[in-house]
């Protein structure tokens, strides 16, 4: 919370109040819990699939493709040892030459979105832009999961 809100809570008698310096958006981006009316609406981090396959830059595309397809996936997120997102291989990139390294075939530095974005906004943009999947990350770029368009659309309530 903001320093002013923290001081105000202290003035109201709360004894254990902290100022989260990185801010509310960073708190939510880490997937930490929130309260209030908006907290009930599904968010990208909740809907994203956490079991998305990952691979490293120096792996061979052919073996990665075989592994992820065996797991029933058509996409794989390229991460480093800290699980920071470096690239993305969607179905189109997975079709590239088997002898390429992942770093040669991947879509580098893909757009990523934070966990707290409401799912109806993500669904709207993904349908409008015909995007099949997109990585969801924390503020420091670590992978939370892969959000699939079909999952996002299915979680939108009819009145939204």
């Amino acid at each position: 919370m903001s320093p002013r809100a923290a001081w105000r809570l202290e003035s109201l008698g709360f004894g254990e109040v902290y100022d989260y310096v990185a801010g509310k958006l960073d708190w939510m981006a880490a997937g930490l819990p929130t309260e209030g009316t908006n907290a009930m609406r599904p968010r990208a981090g909740e809907v994203a699939r956490k079991d998305v396959p990952t691979c490293g830059l120096k792996e061979m595309l052919g073996s990665v493709r075989e592994r992820v397809r065996r797991q029933g996936w058509d996409a794989v997120v390229v991460v480093n040892e800290e699980r920071v997102v470096l690239g993305l291989l969607r179905s189109k990139e997975l079709e590239s030459d088997s002898d390429l390294l992942v770093e040669q075939a991947m879509r580098p530095g893909p757009s990523t979105f934070r966990t707290f974005v409401h799912i109806e906004e993500m669904a709207h943009f993904m349908v409008e832009h015909e995007l099949e999947s997109t990585p969801i990350t924390t503020s420091d770029g670590r992978l939370v999961g892969l959000l699939l368009q079909m999952d996002a659309v299915s979680r939108v309530r009819p009145d939204e």
Partner: peptide, 8 residues
């Protein structure tokens, strides 16, 4: 985009 998605 960031404003539309509430990321900023």
């Amino acid at each position: 985009l960031n404003v539309a998605l509430g990321q900023a």
